[in-house]
Amino acid sequence: MVEILNIFIMLMLVITALAMVSSRHLFVTVMLSGIFSLLIAASFLLLDAADVALTEAAVGAGISTVLFLGALALMDVEETTRGVRRIRMVSLIVVAVTTIFIVHATFYMPAFGDINAPIHQHVAPWYIQHVPIHMDIPNIVTGILGSYRGYDTLGEVFVVFTAGIGVLSILGDPIKNRQHRPAHNRGLRHYLIPRLVGRMLIPFIILFGLYVQFHGEYSPGGGFQAGALVAAAIILYALLEGEDKALQVIPMRVLYIMMASGALLYGGVGVAALLMGGNFLDYSVLASTPVAGQQWGILLIEMGVGLTVTGVLITIFHAFAARSNL
């Protein structure tokens, strides 16, 4: 039964992808890419990856679509050139050859779902066995993400941080960009119903974000998903009430501090472990018992992730919005 659902979603994925690439209307392409993200999130859920599904839904279908739409507000939404025929032929050949190579190799891969495949025999069972012992938390994904591979996650936070300062550096400070124009942007003030409903929803979204943040050790979720949710709530506020209002609630200065302090909090936990005699990011030394230390460490670094992600996503939104109203 699940297999049929799987095949159905896979088919939908391919169809959506084809439509995305072939549509000449960019708006359609972007909306289809949002649908694609939701479909692939459903597929992740079927494949037992709840955390990934939550992230993909929040990021791919939510934030990414908002960013694309913000950028499209500035451009022609019609694709005018079809491209050079020669390039299309060359890319078709490249693509076809690569596909043949991959499909050829799949025949020698372990079968889908085979528990005897090497990946289920080495390393991964150790994690499943040791997360309850080392950290005593139910969500194994959070345990690996926060501690065993915490250094990767540190890198991930800095990737987000880089994107934040990158967009600011490329598009310029939103406040300065906004000074050049009259404040005609009032959000959706004249739309009564969306405004009322939206305002009612914002507290719930933030509440859910906080739940995802602090319940990440027990259920799917964590700093990144929570950050995306809280940022979505603030972005919704900005859409309803206008960016000026949103910038009054959380000024740019605060956003700068959020971006930097989240990354520093994460790094700081690592350095604290270093100073207390452990290796970098070795949370075991942070508290009286190693298990408590691990739990504190994961809690703190997840907060760092949440802070940075929230700050960066809101900043990126403001940076785009300030441009598109020029």
Binding site: F158, F161, I257, M259, A260, V271, F280
Partner: peptide
């Protein structure tokens, strides 16, 4: 003992201070 990680985190963690 910590040289390999210091190599990375010294510049990495200085970056947020730059924007502050």
């Amino acid at each position: 003992e910590h040289l390999p990680v210091l190599q990375v985190i010294l510049p990495l963690l200085s970056a947020p201070f730059c924007i502050l």
